[in-house]
Design a protein around this nucleic acid. Structure first.
Lengths: 207, 207
DNA sequence: GTCTATAACCGGATAGAC
DNA sequence: GTCTATCCGGTTATAGAC
């Protein structure tokens, strides 16, 4: 826990929190300044404008997301069931540590916000999608080798990520319906991850 | 296609579109009026305020969602695999016809908007969650009767809904990565549904 | 680098004519 | 029911002192 943050860093953290909670349109420069214990003028001093501040925040969020999957999928010599269990556990751990990320991404993804579209475009140029291709290849090879049922690799990737995300994105609604389950949320998280891996392995591996 | 809509109806449709695209904070009363070919004053004449307009829109959206699952899960005498295939196909058809719904719900669900919380609270009071219990019961009975592997009913429901939703919520991102697949989106939708049912049946039924 | 005061603008709401 | 003009509060951005 580093105590001596710079004003710039404090502002950036405060801005992340504010944008996550309220979205781009709902976020207030005054509130960001308050959270950081600074004043509005400092935000403009360091980041020029609300747009520019938002862009730097959202770019980092997408970069973290891309880097996660780059890393998970970078190894060429994984077996398909290794790929599956590893993707779920790494994604789950990441989501537990950064619960804000899927929310801000889903929210702004469906907003036609030109800043978001620009950032997405930049990142595709820069990082390519080579590692997705690696994962597709691993799954396709698994089918070929009879280690996997005859499933479409792209659909399988969508299945894995969809299962992982749901809990984190729908949490407020789930919490309202199943309050009792959420009193020990750590335990629930573990059960959720087990249930996903269980479904995927039974559903995808041949017997 | 009814041509003689009332101004009130035109405004409501325009408001739905605007709120879906921009969210509560981003939506503009002027833009709603423009879309409807009317003027701002008319919105206040019919709906009093932006808050009240939003509440009526979001309440209808949640009502449709609740009614869908009430209907799907109302039958007590379904077999578990009937429940699964029927839930996927009905949810998928609904999402195809109302692609706006998951977006507005996911966005506002994570926004702490008090209007959304009020509407959710009202609906739980009024509709209860008896039909979710019905679905849980059907799945638990399936496990008991050996028609289903030993899986947790709640987790299974989350799996089904998570798989269904992902495609519709992540569409902008998926489209950016897999452009080619989206040239025939109807076909892709059919393949997506098949892949989900395939995973669920193989993953949940015993062999 | 930090702060206060204020400019400049925008958006929801309303008054009042027709 | 419909429209124009206008009010008023709130928000981003900036000027300028320290």
């Amino acid at each position: 826990m580093e105590e001596l943050e710079t004003t710039r860093e404090k502002l950036k953290l405060a801005a992340l929190e504010e944008f996550v909670e309220k979205g781009y349109d709902g976020a207030r420069m005054q509130e960001i300044a308050n959270r950081a214990g600074a004043n509005k003028a400092m935000i403009h001093y360091y980041f020029t404008s609300k747009d520019a501040l938002f862009e730097s925040i959202i770019r980092e969020a997408f970069e973290e997301l891309f880097q996660l999957f780059s890393q998970i999928w970078s190894m060429a010599d994984q077996s398909p069931d290794e790929l599956i269990t590893k993707t779920v556990s790494a994604h789950f751990q990441f989501l537990s540590e950064h619960p804000y990320l899927p929310r801000i991404i889903v929210r702004e993804l469906n907003s036609n916000n030109p800043i978001v579209e620009k950032v997405m475009h930049d990142l595709f140029e820069q990082m390519g999608n080579t590692n997705i291709r690696q994962a597709v290849h691993t799954l396709a090879a698994g089918v070929e080798a009879g280690k996997l049922r005859n499933v479409d690799p792209m659909q399988t990737i969508w299945n894995i990520i969809g299962l992982n995300l749901f809990f984190f994105v729908a949490k407020p609604l789930l919490k309202a319906i199943w309050q009792e389950e959420f009193v020990d949320e750590k335990k629930l998280l573990v059960k959720r991850e087990e249930a996903i891996v269980d479904l995927l392995l039974y559903g995808l591996l041949p017997r």
